[in-house]
Simulated assay, not measured.
Amino acid sequence: MKSMSRGMTVWGLLVVMALVAFTALLLMRAVPVYLNDMKVQNALEKVATDSEMSDAGGRALYGALQRYWDIERISHLDPRDVRVVREQGGGRIFEYDYEARISLIANIDLVFYFEDSVPIGRRP
């Protein structure tokens, strides 16, 4: 009786390993960008919910944001690029949108776009 071996060939194993390596590369490049955006959101929420900042002027708000940016080492977005916008009801909100571009391989980049708004002076 003839026995037939079944299983993965060397070429199949190489393809699977290449896919795993490429996925790992994508994750290693993408996760820090998302963690950075989480730091941005956290900094804005902390400044926005600070009771001393509810009636503060723009200079004080941006100073507080700059302190968080320095402590958390936030990149891809400058605190001056965060806008303070007045709502129709008289309240204010932080708004931001930015694009993060990360080199993947040679001249191939990953591009991430983030935007959000956080009300100032109200608990989330």
Results as ranks from 00 to 15, higher is better:
37 D>K: 11
116 D>R: 11
4 M>C: 07
103 S>W: 02
34 Y>D: 00
67 R>V: 14
56 A>F: 04
3 S>F: 09
5 S>E: 07
121 G>E: 03
9 T>V: 02
35 L>R: 08
29 R>F: 07
44 L>I: 03
52 E>F: 12
41 Q>R: 14
109 D>Y: 10
112 F>D: 03
81 D>Y: 03
112 F>N: 01
114 F>W: 08
65 L>P: 08
5 S>Q: 11
16 V>F: 15
72 E>H: 09
43 A>R: 02
79 P>H: 10
48 A>V: 02
57 G>H: 11
12 G>R: 04
4 M>H: 12
108 I>Q: 05
58 G>K: 13
45 E>H: 13
116 D>S: 15
23 T>P: 08
58 G>V: 06
75 S>D: 15
30 A>K: 00
36 N>S: 08
24 A>Y: 06
77 L>Y: 09
120 I>C: 05
59 R>S: 14
74 I>D: 02
50 D>L: 04
19 L>H: 05
103 S>M: 09
120 I>G: 10
91 G>H: 09
37 D>Q: 15
18 A>I: 11
39 K>G: 08
86 R>V: 03
31 V>K: 01
106 A>P: 00
61 L>W: 02
60 A>T: 09
111 V>H: 06
36 N>Q: 08
67 R>S: 14
25 L>Y: 14
79 P>A: 08
72 E>N: 12
123 R>E: 11
26 L>N: 08
36 N>H: 06
57 G>R: 09
89 G>Q: 01
6 R>P: 01
14 L>E: 00
30 A>N: 00
86 R>K: 12
51 S>D: 05
40 V>W: 05
113 Y>E: 14
3 S>T: 12
65 L>H: 05
43 A>E: 02
44 L>M: 15
36 N>T: 06
107 N>L: 10
74 I>N: 06
13 L>Y: 12
72 E>V: 01
20 V>G: 13
109 D>M: 01
66 Q>C: 07
62 Y>M: 07
109 D>E: 06
11 W>Q: 00
28 M>I: 11
12 G>L: 01
51 S>F: 08
77 L>P: 10
31 V>A: 12
88 Q>F: 04
9 T>R: 05
104 L>C: 08
84 V>L: 10
69 W>L: 07
9 T>P: 09
87 E>P: 05
77 L>I: 15
42 N>G: 12
21 A>F: 15
97 D>Q: 12
91 G>D: 10
34 Y>S: 07
46 K>C: 10
102 I>R: 13
105 I>K: 10
94 F>E: 03
32 P>T: 01
21 A>I: 07
50 D>V: 03
111 V>P: 05
63 G>F: 07
15 V>K: 01
106 A>M: 06
45 E>Y: 12
60 A>W: 00
60 A>Y: 04
118 V>A: 02
108 I>S: 01
44 L>V: 12
64 A>F: 02
106 A>D: 10
9 T>Q: 03
34 Y>G: 00
103 S>R: 15
8 M>Y: 15
82 V>W: 06
117 S>T: 07
68 Y>L: 04
87 E>Q: 15
108 I>G: 00
37 D>N: 15
63 G>K: 06
91 G>V: 01
84 V>F: 09
24 A>Q: 02
31 V>F: 13
